[in-house]
Amino acid sequence: MEETIAGTESAQIPHQRGDSLRETAVRYVEERHWDVFPGTWLETAGGVQLCSCGDPACAAPGAHPARREWAAQATGSVTVARRLWSDRPTASVLLPTGRTFDAIDVPESAGFLALARMRRMDLGLGPVTCTPDRRMQFFVLPGAAAKIPGLVRALGWPPASLDLTTLGEGAYVAAPPTRVGSRGAVQWACRPTPANRWLPDAEELISPLAYACGRDR
């Protein structure tokens, strides 16, 4: 059985359970050459899903790094990825940014508006995630974090006025099919395909994203 995001194109992901997480992590390494690392996981106690970190007020239960040295743990090796998830098969699948891609993070409402505009403009899109916290993350070439403030200013927006951030070196994204507590799973709004293997530059997407975020204020 698969989950889909209503209104998106072929946005299908497997449910998060057991080996599917390990095999999904391995596919990200094999097919996209993305580094991956296992994060925390969900544990059920008294009928309630809690984060393995032990914090009952965890902001991202089951979907954040489990170790401080997570950046060093991230791997692009299929063999190592299989071993990491064999040790903890229910661990979330996390992807470090600032390596093979950066991610532009916007509110879901602005993201879908921008996505529709990008398709009308026939812009080349990379993968895009949709999180249970109603955020969307557009994957772009590395280096976007340094460019975005200047690009936003050039469009006439003070960067601080828009709910638009960039995840680059030292940050990470949760990848489908990672679940975030009881809120649901991270899903693909635009799933990885052979057609979007080559990522767009931030400069190609920033205009519709900034416009949509400005409308969404």
Rank of each mutant, 00 (worst) to 15 (best):
G156T: 10
L151R: 02
A154R: 14
L141Y: 01
R197G: 04
D87P: 01
R99H: 14
D122L: 14
V48D: 08
S10P: 00
T97F: 02
E108F: 04
P200G: 07
A210S: 13
G62V: 11
P14Y: 10
A154I: 06
Q137E: 11
L115G: 05
F101R: 05
I5N: 02
Q187W: 02
R119G: 05
Q12A: 13
A72P: 04
A6N: 11
R191Y: 06
A81S: 09
T40F: 03
M118I: 06
W85T: 08
R27K: 14
A195R: 14
W198F: 08
G39N: 06
W188K: 04
G98W: 00
V48K: 15
A146N: 12
L199C: 06
A154V: 04
D102N: 08
L162M: 10
R215Y: 11
W41G: 00
F138Y: 09
A63N: 09
L94K: 03
Q73E: 15
A6G: 13
P96V: 02
M121F: 07
T131M: 01
E169R: 15
P14V: 15
S10T: 12
V140E: 00
G7A: 04
P61T: 03
F37W: 00
F139Q: 06
L155F: 04
P132I: 06
E30H: 05
R119Y: 07
R99G: 09
R22D: 00
R134E: 07
D102V: 06
E169D: 10
G181L: 08
M1S: 13
P200T: 08
E3V: 15
A146M: 12
V93S: 04
S207R: 15
A146G: 09
G39A: 07
V80Y: 00
A189R: 02
R191I: 12
R217S: 08
S20L: 15
L50T: 12
L155H: 02
V173Q: 10
S77A: 08
Y211T: 11
L209A: 08
S207L: 14
E30F: 03
E31W: 08
F138P: 01
H15D: 05
S52H: 05
T44F: 07
P192R: 03
D87G: 07
T8H: 08
R32H: 07
A45H: 15
L113P: 00
V29P: 01
S161L: 04
L115Q: 05
L94M: 06
S10L: 13
D102Y: 01
P96Y: 00
R67W: 08
V26R: 13
M1R: 11
S77H: 08
A114L: 09
T90W: 01
A57R: 15
E43A: 12
A185D: 09
R67H: 11
V29R: 02
A60F: 12
L115Y: 08
D163E: 13
T75W: 00
R17M: 11
P208E: 05
R68P: 04
V180M: 10
E69C: 09
G46K: 07
T8Q: 10
T75C: 02
Q137N: 10
G39D: 05
G7V: 04
A212K: 01
A189D: 05
A6M: 11
P200M: 11
Q73A: 12
L50I: 12
T40H: 09
A114E: 10
T40P: 04
C58D: 05
L151Q: 11
D201E: 13
